[in-house]
Each structure stands twice: as structure tokens, then as C-alpha cells.
Simulated scan of single mutants.
Amino acid sequence: MKNKSSMKIHFRNGCLALVLGSALAFPAASADPEAIVDYRQGVMSSLGGNTAASAAILMDGVDFRENLEKHARILAEFTRDIPALFPEGTDVGDHDAREAVWTDRETFENRAADTQEAAEAFYAVVRDGGSEQEIVAAFRDMGQSCRACHDDFRR
């Protein structure tokens, strides 16, 4: 007979598998447009926070240089999701997205791809130990790409 500790572990693992399996089996539960807007706003706020933290390190000389690679990695990872964060039907509630996100989707997706490429380049130069000038240039390129998208697609 199994001991209580082993049974608890199996029970916990079974519950975890059930929860994860349910999430995969019922993806429509996450399709609530307002929930998607909330998630989108959280991700975009995270991008803004990591950009601001990177700027504080690079431009203002804040002494958290050891965190720069983490900030750059997060920017590279989360910018991949930008187009998916704006699915059809999520022009609801309180948000800053302009209608052009959905009506000029091709331009929006191109700008998002440019931003993602710039974020990847920023991460690569930080990760690979580029010079200060290379890192700052890549950061500025990423910022310009973000701004270009915001100019046309954010209120």
C-alpha cells in the first residue's frame, strides 16, 4: 500500500493534469474579449516597464546593469505576441488601440514584425556582449520601431 505522502503527490499531479487538460480542451473559455484586452494591456505595460528599465540603465546610468539582459530578453519574447494580442472582436472596453489595428491589419502586422525584429536585435547585442555604442543603437532602433507603431495604432 502506498504511503500518504505518495498518495498526496499522485492526487496533486492528477489534479494538475486535469486542470491543464481542461485549459487545452476548452480554449474558448479564454476567448472573452474583455479578458483578452486585460491580458493585452498587462503585456503591453510589461513591455513599457522593461523598456523604461532598460532606458534607466542605458541612458541614466542606473546601477542595475546585470538585469539588462533579462529586460532585453523579455522585450524580445513578448513582442512576438503583439499581433495575436489584437484578435478580431477585441475592440471592446477601455483600451488605447485605434480602429486601424483591425482595419489596416497588414500595416499593423508589418509594424509589429519590425518591432519584434528590433527587440530581437537589441537582445542579441546585449546577450552577445556588444559594445556600449552597439547596445544603445539597438535600443534606440527598437524604441523608434515601437514609436512608429504607436503613432499609427495607439490613441
Rank of each mutant, 00 (worst) to 15 (best):
A23N: 11
T115F: 05
P33E: 10
E109P: 02
E99V: 07
A97D: 05
G143N: 03
S45N: 15
K4A: 15
F86N: 01
H10S: 07
A112C: 12
E99T: 07
M142T: 03
D81E: 11
F86G: 01
R140L: 13
N67Q: 14
R98K: 15
W102N: 01
D128E: 14
R73L: 12
A76P: 02
S30W: 12
S46F: 08
D91E: 14
S131E: 12
P87T: 09
L58C: 08
A119Q: 00
E106I: 05
D81M: 08
R127K: 15
V125C: 01
A29H: 04
G129I: 06
N50D: 13
A55K: 10
D38S: 14
S6E: 15
F86K: 04
A72C: 08
A23Y: 10
A118W: 01
L16G: 01
D141S: 09
V62T: 13
D91I: 10
A72W: 00
D104R: 09
M59D: 13
D151M: 13
A52Q: 12
A31E: 10
A28F: 08
A55Q: 09
R154K: 15
L24Q: 05
S45I: 08
N67E: 14
R147G: 02
A121R: 03
F153A: 11
A84M: 14
D63C: 02
G129R: 03
E88N: 03
A55D: 08
A76M: 09
F26C: 07
V43G: 07
S45G: 15
D38C: 05
L85I: 10
V101M: 01
D94H: 13
N3D: 15
V125S: 00
R147W: 03
L20P: 01
A100L: 08
V125G: 01
F11A: 15
A118Y: 01
E69F: 00
H71G: 00
H10L: 11
P83L: 04
